[in-house]
């Protein structure tokens, strides 16, 4: 396959999705739609994060104490709720995750 054809196609398609609504500055949304759009960030981020914790390999549901993604993920949720500070959440979450993976012998050391 021609890699440059693929890159060009991906460029056009990606830009089209991102520019889709930016292209129509005259467009005004009705109140119900504007109200709904307020939920886009929460819904999309939750949809990315939750499977990442429960289905870490992208294939099978893993609810067990050997799933560091889930345990450290729940800990990260708690830190985020208490501190409401993004950088503190990321640092604490990553520290907990790698500590757990090390304790569970899941690091390629």
């Amino acid at each position: 396959m021609n890699a440059w054809l693929m890159i060009g196609g991906m460029l056009v398609i990606t830009f089209a999705t991102r520019y889709s609504f930016f292209a129509w500055p005259e467009l005004r949304f009705p109140p119900l739609l504007r109200q709904s759009l307020n939920y886009v960030p929460i819904a999309m981020l939750a949809a990315i994060v939750v499977p990442g914790m429960f289905i870490p390999d992208g294939q099978t549901l893993n609810v067990s104490w050997r799933n560091a993604y889930l345990l450290a993920g729940l800990f990260t949720v708690a830190v985020a709720a208490i501190t409401r500070h993004l950088l503190a959440t990321v640092v604490c979450g990553l520290a907990a995750f790698f500590l757990l993976r090390w304790m569970l012998g899941q690091l390629p050391l």
């Binding site: 994060v49 499977p51 549901l61 993920g73 990260t76 949720v77 985020a80 993004l86």
Partner: peptide
């Protein structure tokens, strides 16, 4: 996962927001 969690959790201030997050997460699974 940690960064997106750190953004979304503090956004959950009302029950409709929590409901949106729970339903989106469950549907994603």
């Amino acid at each position: 996962i940690a960064t997106f969690t750190g953004i979304v959790v503090p956004m959950l201030r009302s029950y409709p927001q929590v409901a949106a997050a729970v339903v989106a997460g469950a549907t994603a699974m």
